[in-house]
Design a protein around this nucleic acid. Structure first.
Length: 460
RNA sequence: GUGAAUGUAGCUCAGUUGGUUAGAGCAUCAGAUUGUGAUUCUGAGGGUCGCGGGUUCGAGUCCCGUCUUUCACCCCA
């Protein structure tokens, strides 16, 4: 019999890892809720027709398809079957697929429930998504996204609040060295015009997005190979070279792209976003206007963001942007503008592990272990542990009558900070021998004193 | 999807031109210590060498296939 294995790119999460993951989930959830977002969950599976065509050709390839139930080949067309054309056969035998992100199912939900929804609708969603990508560091086939989107308004306050939420989350997680990059599709459109991109916008954006990776020469070579003229590229790079503060970059953009209406409007958008971030947050650090930022799904139409943590590998940990036409894909009458972003929990986890940022408390199963020397002491201890629990203190009692050494080792391994030892002396006197496992100090304390010591302090 | 590496104990890794019974550290368990962990000492358990096939008198070592993980491309959280 073969030993069981996991499908490629999927993982189990044991208790120690889960404690850390929960810390990230709870941090993100609390920030989302503080900004007035409400939770939503959608199914793991969607109809394939809901998913296909929303992520570009590459994305369609990365969708996991779910085979129809029953004897689906019986119904299938004979000629199609013998053609062995997977591309044409798939829609016939697989009508469902695992969701690829949370934004498209959200748009589907909005279109299906528009009469019950109060707009602007702010929802957050924390669920796994699946991509049939080849796994690498920081790239999994099943991973969690934490999305927050606002739909039904084109106000740039939403963009600004997204930036503030990212700052709040990172501050709470203890991540200090990171950058939030921002750009605008209108700016990219202006660049495309400058470069004479005609119908090659996609190729242009893919190339300039690699600027910090392959450098100016690399980008130029790639674009010339794709038929761009060297002269046009000189103009393009005069803009891409923009350095300095965000206002300085904006001034340069205005100067270089000023004759392009869409670009001008997008520059004004970016200015407004920076203005709002400064107003709401005091300053705009660590937001950086990055004119070469061109990532993001095909449906973004306005501002786009990407967040990277410095000094760690594994790609961006968050990204998002504004989309004007996403709901229209499901219903042409539906033309609401939306903006949202997503945290990649698995990448945040990897980065925090690498930077050693998880607080030790995440590994604590409880605050105190009640230890005992015999069965009578355990019976006495059972009442003690219930009293502690009733006071909101996470407490546990060692379930077997084992040697003290074993009980304390158990507390040590589970990172429980205190042990309350009960023997015949303690039962007689009514006090507990409370041992601090970190310092090794031990004092006799009443139950009330122990409760006062461990009672959870009110968190701000 | 294209190209390339990797895999030996729970973990990190040794293992000679192919040669007898595959090793170490850490971890685990037991004892030294029948009311005290994390420090010390003693001992013990733990391996289909990723899996399958081939070459050979003989394979952890060489060859082929496969899976896993990783890296680059593509794309992305």
């Amino acid at each position: 019999m073969d030993r069981p294995t996991l499908p490629k790119g999927t993982r189990d999460f044991g208790p120690a890892v889960m404690a850390k993951r929960q810390f990230i989930f709870q941090t993100i959830r609390s920030v989302f809720e503080r900004y007035g977002f409400l939770p939503l969950e959608t199914p793991a599976m969607e109809n394939l027709s809901t998913l296909t065509g929303k992520y570009g050709e590459e994305g369609d390839q990365l969708l996991f398809k779910v085979l129809n139930s029953g004897d689906f080949l019986k119904e299938a067309d004979e000629a199609l079957l013998s053609s062995r054309d997977s591309r044409r056969l798939t829609p016939v035998i697989a009508e469902k697929g695992l969701k690829y992100d949370l934004t498209v199912p959200f748009a589907r939900y909005v279109v299906m429930n528009r009469h019950e929804i109060t707009f602007p609708f702010k929802r957050y969603q924390i669920q796994p998504v699946w991509r049939a990508d080849r796994p690498q560091k920081g790239r999994y086939r099943e991973f969690y996204q934490c999305d927050a989107d606002v739909i039904g308004t084109d106000s740039l306050v939403c963009e600004a609040e997204i930036i503030l939420m990212i700052r709040d989350v990172f501050a709470k997680l203890g991540i200090l060295t990171y950058s939030i990059k921002i750009n605008h599709r209108g700016v990219l459109a202006g660049l495309a015009r400058l470069a004479g991109a005609w119908n090659q916008e996609g190729a242009l954006f893919v190339a300039i997005d690699k600027l910090d990776k392959i450098g100016e020469d690399g980008v130029k070579t790639e674009l010339i190979n794709r038929g761009f003229s060297p002269d046009a590229l000189t103009d393009l790079f005069s803009v891409l070279h923009a350095k300095g503060t965000n206002p300085e970059k904006l001034a340069l953009l205005r100067n270089k792209l000023g004759n392009h209406e869409a670009a001008l409007a997008s520059i004004a958008d970016l200015e407004k976003v920076f203005d709002l971030v400064n107003l709401l947050g005091g300053d705009d650090a660590p937001v950086e206007l990055d004119i070469s930022l061109a990532r993001g799904l095909s449906y973004y139409t306005g501002c786009i963001f990407e967040v990277k943590i410095q000094g760690v590998g594994g790609g961006s940990v968050s990204g998002g942007g504004r989309y004007d036409n996403l709901t229209a894909v499901f219903d042409a009458k539906e033309k609401s503008s939306g903006v949202g972003f997503s945290f990649g929990v698995d990448r945040l986890f990897d980065a925090m592990e690498e930077l050693n940022l998880f607080p030790e408390e995440t590994q604590r199963s409880s605050q105190v272990l009640v230890c005992h020397l015999d069965e009578d002491c355990q019976r006495y201890g059972l009442k003690v542990v219930q009293s502690l629990r009733s006071q909101g203190i996470a407490a546990e009692i060692y379930p077997d009558s084992s040697k003290m050494k074993k009980q304390l080792e158990y507390a040590d391994k589970k990172k429980i900070p205190f042990a309350a030892v009960i023997g015949s002396d303690e039962m007689k006197s009514g006090v507990l021998a409370v041992k601090n496992l970190k310092t090794g100090e031990q004092h006799l304390q009443t139950l009330e004193q122990l409760i006062a010591l461990l009672k959870p302090v009110h968190k701000p």
